[in-house]
Design a protein around this nucleic acid. Structure first.
Lengths: 182, 182
DNA sequence: ACCTGAACACCGTTCAAGT
DNA sequence: ACCTGAACACCGTTCAAGT
């Protein structure tokens, strides 16, 4: 079977899930495909773009909510994004850095911006960006602390607060969207 | 002059400011101090704790607002944190990862939690965490795009939207804090 | 106590050479 | 067209040996 960028991205996701982001190296991916590291550069320009492709793959798995009102839609979107990120080890860190660097073809805020604009909500761009930053930052912390718990470095009590804190942050932002300016 | 953990952290900050987080390696820090890389391990346990110490140093430079009401205090705090981060290259990424990993002795949310609790605002912990995640995520994006602008990869227009988007995100969260639950 | 020198096990990336 | 082999310039960390 010949090498392809799809196969390379798939191997990257497998290594990400099993060993974490730090172990997704060009050499490890090449090993998993039974090939020399240099061979990857025939199908992928560099490591950054490989990671961006993995990030895109994860973002494609986010379910688009079929929302009634804006508040419910945003809440469902944030929850769906969180679930998609929690499905892959270190996904929040990976997606956050790929997004900050402007790499990645998939824009997770696209649908949300359109809905906010259609309902006449002000600043759809900045609003979705704020929600995205909160979700990525929160899930990143969730994923690193859950790894600490797995390693026995931290107690599990700190871990359980994660879901409640997430819901509260989403509530604050959604309330802000619903509230008129003073 | 003998080596010390303070001198090592200072050298780390200088390299961070001049060359960015990717160039803060144990070997580069050692070079800047005219010493072998292995010598650092006599004063610092590993690279992670060195980066955490640099993160702490940056967080210590955040000015504590002398706020009137809660909304003004939170807005001033977010702005002050942003300014402190913008003062050092890649600071948001550095502080975010140090914070997510639970390293670092300085807790940037400490003062805010106390104030929220004193005013009877619910969920001070989750509220400050939400604000912190937004600020770190936003400034991280600001700093990476400003580097893209410096490299000529991106146009400057995208950069100028940063400050407005930041103010809007803070507004949403502060409105959420002020609004009663439904 | 504090630092050097050298090693170990890795990196990302490039590129002539093979098929 | 696609991949190997080998190299280049790096990493973090350890540790005997020196002073």
């Amino acid at each position: 079977m010949a090498l392809s960028s799809e196969a390379i991205v798939d191997a990257g996701i497998r290594i990400l899930d099993e060993y974490g982001l730090a172990d997704v190296s060009m050499r490890r991916v090449a090993d998993a495909l039974g090939v020399q590291a240099g061979a990857l550069y025939y199908h992928v320009p560099n490591k950054q773009s490989l990671l961006a492709a993995v990030s895109d793959e994860i973002l494609r798995s986010v379910e688009v909510p079929s929302g009634a009102n804006v508040a419910e839609w945003l809440t469902a979107w944030a929850g769906g994004l969180r679930r998609a990120l929690l499905a892959h080890r270190d996904a929040a860190e990976l997606v956050a850095s790929a997004h900050a660097l402007g790499l990645g073809a998939v824009d997770p805020c696209e649908g949300g911006r359109a809905i906010l604009e259609a309902r006449g909500v002000p600043e759809p761009d900045a609003t979705m960006a704020a929600l995205l930053h909160f979700v990525l930052g929160h899930v990143n912390e969730e994923q690193t602390t859950s790894q600490m718990v797995a390693l026995g470095v931290i107690e599990e009590s700190a871990h359980r607060a994660g879901e409640d804190h997430f819901a509260w942050g989403v509530t604050l932002l959604v309330r802000g969207v619903q509230t008129q300016a003073a």
